[in-house]
């Protein structure tokens, strides 16, 4: 639609870019803050240094928290990808009775307040003796990350006709071959995107980690949170900026995979 540069339209465009700037600016601001030479949080910093990155990299606490986040995040992403993909295929292709309710069950964990889930999981984990361990955090976060994979894979499955799978079956492929040679290649981009998003969410998750982790298994967000409540040094800014960079890279990968996948899926008739 071509449109004459109308005054209202111009104002709306200006407003749009201002609002988008408002969305991004506070996050981007963390980066110069992390290179501050001041020992107190000041913006804009009056001098520059990388000492907060040195402090961040040198801190045993931070190093362990990053390690813990990875130790938790990878299994969470893997388990979420498996559960989310299985559920999406069963619900989209299985003609299950009550599929609307089941679908809601696999979306709900992303919507239900995490605090409620946390006070429900805590006594359960105490009972089975997992509280404070990595498996407790992994299982808990997998619950809230599964919906991301479920939604992404579900959308991918709705994006192509089931006749591809039926065609494979008439051509002699049993269930196993149909899944590995046809269904999985078709949904692979969605599974990869879901995996990345699940990892990102796990890497950022605070509330379940607060209840289910112990000081030795605490993840990055929990350490940040503990730091925030009693000191406000630019070390936190350095830590945040690092997380931000990692998140950014992961999202770029996800976007790249997503771009490629739409080309493929749209090309199919």
């Amino acid at each position: 639609m071509s449109r004459a540069p109308h005054l209202g339209w111009r104002l709306a465009t200006i407003f749009t870019w201002l609002l988008l700037l408002f969305l991004v600016a506070p996050i981007v601001m963390v980066v110069p803050l992390s290179f501050s030479g001041n020992s107190f949080l000041e913006f804009p910093p009056t001098s520059w240094s990388t000492r907060w990155y040195a402090a961040f990299a040198g801190s045993l606490d931070y190093r362990q928290a990053v390690m813990n986040s990875v130790i938790v995040g990878l299994p969470v992403a893997l388990l979420s990808s498996i559960f989310g993909t299985l559920a999406a295929i069963a619900i989209e292709r299985g003609a299950l009775p009550g599929r609307r309710i089941l679908a809601a069950l696999f979306v709900a964990p992303a919507i239900i307040p995490q605090m409620v889930l946390a006070i429900g999981l805590y006594p359960l984990m105490v009972q089975v003796g997992l509280i404070g361990s990595f498996p407790a955090v992994i299982l808990g976060q997998t619950v809230i990350c599964t919906p991301l994979v479920f939604l992404a894979v579900g959308a991918a499955l709705r994006g192509y006709a089931p006749s591809y799978e039926l065609a494979a079956m008439t051509l002699g492929a049993g269930r196993w071959h149909t899944f590995w040679l046809v269904t999985f290649p078709m949904i692979r981009p969605a599974v990869v995107i879901g995996f990345i998003l699940a990892f990102t969410v796990s890497f950022d998750e605070l509330i379940l980690a607060m209840f289910l982790a112990s000081p030795t298994t605490r993840t990055m967000p929990r350490l940040l949170w503990e730091q925030l409540t009693y000191e406000m040094t630019p070390t936190i800014a350095a830590a945040t900026a690092s997380i931000l960079a990692a998140t950014g890279v992961l999202l770029l990968v996800a976007a790249w995979v997503g771009r490629r996948s739409t080309v493929r899926l749209d090309a199919a008739p």
């Binding site: 006709a161 006749s163 591809y164 039926l166 065609a167 494979a168 008439t170 040679l181 046809v182 290649p185 078709m186 493929r264 899926l265 090309a267 199919a268 008739p269």
Partner: peptide
């Protein structure tokens, strides 16, 4: 079987 949308595997 031949389908209306051909169903050739795109990959």
């Amino acid at each position: 079987m031949v389908f209306q949308n051909y169903s050739l595997f795109p990959h």
